[in-house]
């Protein structure tokens, strides 16, 4: 049961990626996503695959973990692949039967799209979620957004809310499990009957869950006030984020990747993505 809570899925480690500054890492992830979408040419895609393999190798996160993260996406990946195979028109006809026309281009296109989605998810999760604690992540985000505080956006409050939300996900999951067990012990049945019946069967879970969430919120607010929390103004930090040589190095590597992808897009021969 605890194994199901993969949210945030930080993987303890001390690799190059783990030690990057979270502020930079957020920017790197955005940059990486942009580069992934820039790639059009098959060779550019090959370069991307290489970069993703390199990222995974550097992070020292077991492949098994990454594959597990991809599992929920199987349906979406299969869906886009199938749409591409059947709808894309090209020059080389492979199958021409009744209303089904499959072209070689369609298949290549489908493959490239699948590669794109896989790299998108695997790459960014290795770069960000697997190697950054949720706390460091929100901290980095707060720092990145801090200029917005100048135009009176409550950046600190926003990031505090995010931290608290992340912190309480496992707690609420555990609580839901407890309440479900308690109601099951009284003969509640969540898995049979019509949709309406099943929806109704959720009431005995949702009401106690909401009540306890409100109770927790109140307790947390009191506890924070007892420790003199008054918001972000004038608050200093225990852990100050430091940028090291690793961040410019990573930045350089990504720029090189971007340049490589753009160059290959223009000059390399071979198939180019249709959408």
């Amino acid at each position: 049961m605890k194994a199901d809570i993969a949210f945030g899925q930080y993987y303890e480690g001390n690799s190059f990626l783990h030690r990057l500054d979270p502020r930079w890492k957020i920017l790197f992830s955005i940059f990486y996503i942009v580069v992934i979408f820039l790639a059009k040419n098959v060779f550019a895609f090959a370069l991307l695959v290489l970069s993703a393999i390199l990222l995974i190798a550097v992070s020292r996160i077991p492949l098994r973990m990454i594959l597990r993260g991809l599992k929920p996406l199987i349906f979406i990946i299969a869906f886009t692949a199938i749409i591409n195979i059947f709808w894309l028109k090209g020059k080389t006809v492979l199958v021409d039967w009744w209303i089904i026309h499959i072209y070689l281009e369609g298949i290549i296109n489908a493959l490239l799209i699948v590669v794109r989605v896989v790299i998108l998810v695997a790459g960014t999760s290795v770069l960000l979620t697997y190697t950054t604690t949720p706390l460091a992540l929100t901290d980095g985000l707060e720092r990145l957004l801090s200029p917005l505080a100048k135009i009176r956006l409550p950046v600190h409050e926003f990031s505090m809310m995010m931290t608290i939300a992340l912190r309480f996900i496992p707690t609420l999951v555990e609580e839901t499990e407890k309440i479900m067990n308690a109601q099951k012990a009284r003969g509640a049945d969540f898995s049979t009957g019509s949709l309406a019946r099943r929806a109704k069967a959720l009431i005995p879970i949702l009401i106690p869950l909401f009540i306890s969430a409100f109770r927790r919120a109140e307790e947390l607010a009191t506890a924070m006030e007892c420790r003199c929390y008054t918001g972000g103004k004038g608050r200093t930090r225990m852990n100050i984020l430091h940028s090291t040589w690793r961040d410019p190095a990573m930045c350089l590597a990504l720029c090189a990747l971007c340049a490589g992808v753009v160059l290959l897009n223009y000059f390399a021969p071979g198939y180019t993505l249709a959408m």
Partner: peptide, 25 residues
């Protein structure tokens, strides 16, 4: 089975219908 801190499982409008949840099931 009465779980730990069972008071957190109460949900119904009245005490009577809450106690009656099990028998109703």
């Amino acid at each position: 089975l009465v779980m730990q801190y069972p008071e957190y499982q109460l949900f119904d409008e009245t005490v009577e219908s809450d106690i009656g949840f099990g028998p109703k099931n």
